[in-house]
């Protein structure tokens, strides 16, 4: 059994959750952005998580592939396809012919909920790392 492999596994989750929190922060920072390099208002970003199988060397050696444990990875960061919010601001430089400005569809409550979820999941996996570290320390203490 590979105790250090578990650290890698929990580490993948820490990485993915941090990326999710980063995307949420970016969404909130750009809640009022009307100009982007691609043109038009900022589009809310979403992360897509995907389970990724960890290959076990002993099984691969025996010609077997088995789904025993899986790490997680961010498969893609996609744009929210909901339409932008139109606000009547005729004086705004980005206003259209009728005086409406397209603002990103970013809901602060939605973003905060997502952020809290990411933080909690991060904490959970951090405690799993702590447990793994304790087990490794126990194994090492056998040598004393």
């Amino acid at each position: 059994m590979n105790l250090f492999g578990m650290l890698e596994l929990s580490g993948s989750a820490l990485h993915a959750e941090r990326q999710r929190a980063e995307v949420v922060a970016s969404n909130m920072a750009n809640a009022q952005t009307t100009r982007t390099p691609a043109g038009g208002p900022y589009r809310r970003q979403l992360v897509v998580f995907q389970a990724q199988r960890v290959p076990r060397f002993s099984l691969a050696l025996a010609g077997l592939q088995r789904e025993n444990s899986s790490a997680v990875r961010v498969a893609a960061v996609v744009s929210d396809q909901r339409p932008s919010v139109l606000r009547f601001e005729p004086g705004h430089p980005d206003a259209d012919a009728k005086g409406y400005v397209a603002y990103p569809q970013v809901d602060p409550i939605e973003e905060m909920t997502d952020l809290l979820g990411a933080v909690r999941a991060y904490e959970l996996n951090a405690s799993a790392v702590q447990a793994t570290k304790n087990m490794i320390t126990q194994s090492l203490s056998l040598l004393q």
């Binding site: 059994m1 590979n2 105790l3 492999g5 578990m6 596994l9 929990s10 993948s12 989750a13 993915a16 959750e17 999710r20 998580f49 389970a51 960890v54 025993n68 444990s69 899986s70 790490a71 997680v72 979820g117 990411a118 999941a121 959970l124 996996n125 799993a128 447990a131 793994t132 087990m135």
Partner: peptide, 12 residues
């Protein structure tokens, strides 16, 4: 422990 860590990693 590895299996549990895997479950926790894929909580979302």
């Amino acid at each position: 422990h590895q299996v549990i860590a895997s479950n926790l990693a894929n909580i979302d």
